[in-house]
Computed example of a mutant assay.
Amino acid sequence: MSVHSHATTELSERVSISGFTRIVAGYLDESDATYGNYSNSLSISEQSLFAIQGDVIITDTLSASGQLLAHSSEERDSGVEWLYLTYEPNYNWQFKLGKLRTPFFRYTDVIDVGFSYPWISPPQQVYSGFLFSNYEGASGTYKFNIAELNFDVEAYYGTYSGDFSRAGEEIAIDVDEIKGLIFTLNRGNLTARASVTQSSDFYADFPGFNDFADILEAAGYPENAESLRFNGKATGYQANINYDTLDYFIASEWVKIESDLLVVPQLESMYLTLGYNFDQFQLHLTFATSDSSYNIPENLIPKFIDDQLTELSFIYDGITNNLPLYSLDSLTAGLRWDIRFNLSAKAEITFLKGKSNENSFFEDITNPNFDRKATLYQIGLEWVF
């Protein structure tokens, strides 16, 4: 074998290229609002994407991974989705450093790989945009076994600079500290996971909020002023349990967000999914629900004593009374057809029922009488290579 062919063979053994793509079309039977950016006209741009990933084995214990993603939606940037080094000194330990996925949920690492889960769109109540999809930092995972039980314990720490989604708005935000802990248990067909994540040291430029906060502070009401600033912390709790056989599966996931930030809701949500496999097909049914509230401090600005203070007090009430709320029940029925081992087609229908006086994850509400009820139809093609 020549030196050139030997080097080529060695390189091919150390470098692997993979990727995935999805084409999703959706239609919402409602003209008074959008949901997941879907409206009452057929669209293929909201969730369609293409990604390619490269993995390089540097040494027996060190590797590098990077993923480039091209997304068709205007609401999401294309570019480097992750880029990190992995160090595995032995079977038990794994460390990562770089730009990583923030592991909030069960499907966080593969949320863009629709082939890896039953739905076309994971339940919005859980997999919403309140939290940060990526972070720059490090993680460490320890794996161990006790009898037939397999455990993973993961800790991570980092920062985030990007966008935060709120009622259809994208707000630029910097988070100086994101930290979390994850426990995972596997035994046969059963998997369970529990995690906690805390984000703090925020900076965000909410249009109008910071300027009005300065006015309130100058007027002598620092507590109400501080509530309009993005100073504080948010903590997310998550748990899921899944049982999967060749014939059927059942899965449930629960999430709770606690926050002392006025603009981040206190949110509790969950879903329950049942599925049945037969031949090359999969039927699934998912119920999901959510409820939200805010920590709103008492309005200390007096009314009807001074005209300027009265105006400030009413403006403050207007801000706090119009914070978006996210109570929503949904029922999703779907069919998946595995055409090949790496190619699947999906069809899905989701019935949405929110509260009439809330946003309920709907965006661009143009009619105040909209009853927050709609049906979302989707079809998709998922491919991994």
Rank of each mutant, 00 (worst) to 15 (best):
L267M: 02
L190I: 03
Q67S: 10
T8K: 11
H284A: 06
R193A: 03
F105E: 12
E13L: 10
S292P: 15
E88F: 10
F341L: 10
E253V: 02
A288T: 07
A138F: 02
L181N: 12
N369L: 08
Y38P: 01
Y135F: 15
S48Y: 09
K179T: 12
L331Y: 09
N242M: 12
H4Q: 06
V80I: 04
A239V: 13
A172H: 06
N145W: 01
K233N: 08
S31C: 06
L300D: 10
S269P: 02
G158M: 09
S48G: 02
F212T: 14
T273D: 01
H6R: 15
T310Y: 13
S259G: 13
I23N: 12
P207C: 15
R14Q: 13
L246M: 11
N242Q: 04
E298A: 08
E253K: 04
I241N: 08
Q47W: 09
S116E: 00
E348D: 00
Y316I: 03
S2I: 08
G137N: 01
S45E: 05
L381C: 07
I339W: 13
K99Y: 14
R166N: 13
A218Q: 01
T59L: 12
G137V: 00
R372L: 14
L381P: 08
G318V: 10
F362I: 06
R101N: 13
L274V: 05
G220D: 14
W119Q: 05
V56F: 07
D317K: 06
A64V: 01
S41I: 10
N231R: 07
